[in-house]
Each structure stands twice: as structure tokens, then as C-alpha cells.
Design a protein around this nucleic acid. Structure first.
Lengths: 244, 244
DNA sequence: CGCGATTTTGAGAGCCGTCAAGATACGTGG
DNA sequence: CCACGTATCTTGACGGCTCTCAAAATCGCG
């Protein structure tokens, strides 16, 4: 039995959450992939400021992108869930502007960045897919920026929960309306630019309002309409999502 | 005399701030371009939530990207300067998640979004360029996010000024260390997620510290080292920047 | 010169951060 | 299975940064 999964029999691809590929595209990706990487929970996946020779697609577990200041203040930029592509920046600028860290044990497909150009050349549709993913990341950041900059504490929290829930739902991580969320309140605080203490108190307001239930790492949205109304955001993920 | 400029004699391209193109690429862009658009200061360039059939490259003036909440709260996401490409989101998702508004009279090259696919297909290098631009936008957003979420008021302001100055310098808008900045304090406040009042008071602290001079819309950085130290950021723009 | 937009200043309130300590959950080893 | 240590969550008090409100001063433009 091979240690790595063949792309043709990739369980993620079979899940139906991603756009179907032409046979030749799949073949190319199969050849593009040079291995798999496993990282334990809490381990670094990409170092801030590094010059990584690899690109990755996460196919199991959770991770997060972040930036830090010299004195340790940290900002979470986004969460990395299965199907997400990371490491593009070092391919284009020779340096990663952000770090990536595992939240749970994580498994990733590894691609060599020096063959990225060939991907664009041989399979424009895959190049288009990468642009699609970059634009989607940009859209997420736009929304988080609006949130941190202009929403109130409770709105920020509601938004972030809606955002995580929608994304997780988009890749089939929600079962019976429940989601296993491996996120501490400290991390949540670093996502919305607040202190842990105030994050905690605001979270309790959302619980008291019967919007959400969240204990032992399991999130359930009790009153979806109310929560999304507070967050003032859309429920949908853009369709036709690619998977490299 | 033609009303529109031929790409081959584009003054922006001749400025030396952008990567050189192969002849066939230039020809393609020439054909890709279907016209020019002029918008007056304060006018909308792209409407939030719209489904624009066009892509644009701004070649004269300043604009900004933003998102708003229902009650009018506004967050500036980034500034659009000459050479910047806007409108990609509607090509990929059929809807713009943000608006774009002109700060000064603005001129743009117009491209039809339904021919974007052909660009990837015929000229992978140009597709790669678009990915490059998207990744660069993402990097800018990462930095702004860190700023709004985790920097103090004076650090936010210092960072934003450094950011604007560096970008403007990268496209030749800085002359004798001076930059014409068409930005009001209200806009600056909406960029860093603060109120105008506090933005104003913080700006005066930076002036008192002799870091900057800024009046009548002209910005001069008096003590570059001090300002960048407060901002805790790098001075450089990634090299090899493309222009579509 | 006059009007609207922008900048500046002051005062007071409140949201949110820091500090600190206790409670609970989780993982590990005995 | 229990004991223990560490990480996480929770709670309370207090201070201050930043907001809102309001008004005056200045700038830009016709």
C-alpha cells in the first residue's frame, strides 16, 4: 500500500465540493505532487518570512495564517481548511509575508514551486484556478478587514463565527448542524483584534442570546437568522470552487 | 489623433516601473483593451455588489477600494494607484464584494471580462501576472489587517503612511521626497478603523514628533527611520511588478 | 467674498484593555 | 482509575484609550 494517496483516488476530490477536472489536468497534478507532509498540532507549517520551496494543499486538519509584531502581538489572517492552497507568496515574491501553524494534526500535499510556471503554461485552466483561489482569499480578507475595522465587538464575533461555519460547511465539515472547531478563545481574540477577556465576555452574550452553543470544541448555531443578522453578512460561498 | 492611447506607446509602460513584455503579449493586450474610461473625482468606478462586465487597469489618478455596512460604516480596503488592476472579483464570482471610488479624476483602460479566459489560454505569462497582482493585493491586506487588529493608534497611522508612500514611490509618484496625497482625514480614519477625531489628534502627534509634514494635500516624510520604526514595517515593494 | 467641506479643539462618557485570581478542562503519569 | 500540572476559560475591578457630541477655525472653490 502506497504511503501517499493518488490524486485520482483523492477522497477530498470525490467529496463533490470541488469542480471536476479534465483527465489531463488530474494527470498533471498527480505529477506535480511530490509528496505529503504531516505536521502535529501546534507545529509550524510555514515560517513567517521564510522562503519555502514548496506549495501545499491541505487535505486533513485545520491550520491558520498569521502575522506577528516584534513584541509578540499576533493577528490571525485566515483559517486553512481542507482544500485550501497555501504558500503562493513565496513562489511569487521569494518570501512569505505570513506564517502558517497547525491547529490539529495536519496533512498536506506538497508541490514544488519551481514547477508552478509549468502549470500555468501547460494547463491554463489550473492557472485560472489558482487565480480564483487567490481572489477568494482576497475577498475573505476584505470581509475580515471590514469586521475588525468597523464592526462592534459582538458583530465581530458573530461575523467570525458565521464565516468559519460557512466555510466549514462548504467542505463538508458540518454534521447535524454541529462543527468541531479546534479554536481557542485566545485565537479568536487574535482574529478579531480584541483581548481574550473581552472576547470571552462577548461570547457569553451570544450564548445568553441563544444564538450559539459552543463547548468542548463543538460549535452549534442555534439561531442562524439572528446570528447572521447581527453579523450582517451573506451565508454563501462562491460556487465552482477548484482544488489543486 | 486617436482618443485612446495605444498600449505600445503607453507612458506608464515606458516609465520603467513594470516588467517588460514580449511583443506578442503586448499585441494581445492591445487587442484585449476595448476602451478607456474617465471618472471624475468622487465618482463611482465600481459599485459594491455589482456584476461588472469589465476589468480595469488604472493609469491616471487615485481611487480606493472599500466595503460598507448597511448603516453607512465604511472600511477602506486599499488604495488604487496607477498600474493597479481592479475588477477581478466579478470575473470570477459574478459579483463584486467591494466598491471602488475615484479620489481624483481617474482614467482607466477597459477590458472585457469574458475574454479573460482567453488571456490565460493564449498567454500563460499574463495569467501568471494576474495571479501575481492578486497575491500582492493579498499581502497588502494581510499587513493592513495586522495593523488594524494589533497596532496602536500611532502605529496604525505610521504604518498606513509608510505603506502609501512606498507604493506611490514604486510607481514614480514621489518627487523630491514629496507626495501629492488626495486623502482626507476621514478617509484615513476609515482605513485604520478609527474615528476622525482621534485620527486627527494622532496625526498631530506624528507631526509634533517631526516624523512627517502633511499640509495642503502634500506629504513629506521628515524622519523616515523614526516613522518606519514606529510602523515596524519594511520599506520595499516586491520587484518585477507586472502591468496588464 | 461666501459657502461647504475639512480640520481642529474640548469635554465627557463608555467600551475595552490590563491585571489578577479562581474555576474548569485536559493530558500525563503513577 | 486517580492525582496532578498545565492550558484554557471565567469573573471582577479599575484605568485609560478612543468614541461621540458639539462647535470653532481653516481651507478650497466658485
Amino acid at each position: 500500500m502506497p504511503r501517499t494517496v493518488a490524486c485520482a483516488s483523492c477522497p477530498l476530490r470525490a467529496s463533490g465540493h470541488f469542480r471536476a477536472l479534465a483527465g489531463s489536468e488530474l494527470e498533471f497534478i498527480e505529477e506535480f505532487k511530490i509528496g505529503e507532509l504531516t505536521v502535529e498540532a501546534g507545529g509550524p507549517l510555514i515560517l513567517e518570512g521564510s522562503n519555502s520551496p514548496h506549495l501545499y494543499t491541505l487535505f486533513q486538519g485545520w491550520a491558520f495564517r498569521f502575522k506577528t509584531l516584534a513584541d509578540g502581538r499576533r493577528q490571525v489572517l485566515n483559517y486553512v481548511m481542507r482544500g485550501d492552497f497555501v504558500g503562493l507568496q513565496s513562489s511569487l515574491f521569494n518570501t512569505m509575508g505570513h506564517g502558517v501553524e497547525a491547529l490539529t494534526p495536519v496533512r498536506l500535499c506538497v508541490f514544488p514551486r519551481d514547477r508552478l510556471w509549468r502549470l500555468f503554461e501547460r494547463h491554463p485552466a489550473l492557472g485560472f484556478d489558482i487565480t480564483w483561489l487567490a481572489a477568494r482569499e482576497e475577498r475573505s480578507l476584505d470581509e475580515l478587514l471590514l469586521s475588525i475595522g468597523r464592526r462592534t465587538a459582538i458583530e465581530k464575533l458573530a461575523f467570525t463565527i458565521c464565516f468559519l461555519y460557512s466555510r466549514a460547511q462548504g467542505v463538508g465539515l458540518v454534521e447535524n448542524g454541529r462543527l468541531q472547531l479546534p479554536i481557542t478563545q485566545q485565537l479568536l481574540a487574535d482574529t478579531i483584534g480584541m483581548s481574550v477577556v473581552h472576547t470571552n465576555k462577548t461570547l457569553q452574550r451570544l450564548r445568553a442570546m441563544k444564538c450559539i452553543r459552543w463547548d468542548r470544541g463543538e460549535l452549534e448555531i442555534v439561531d442562524e437568522d439572528k446570528l447572521f443578522a447581527i453579523a450582517e453578512t451573506e451565508r454563501e460561498e462562491p460556487p465552482g470552487r477548484p482544488l489543486i
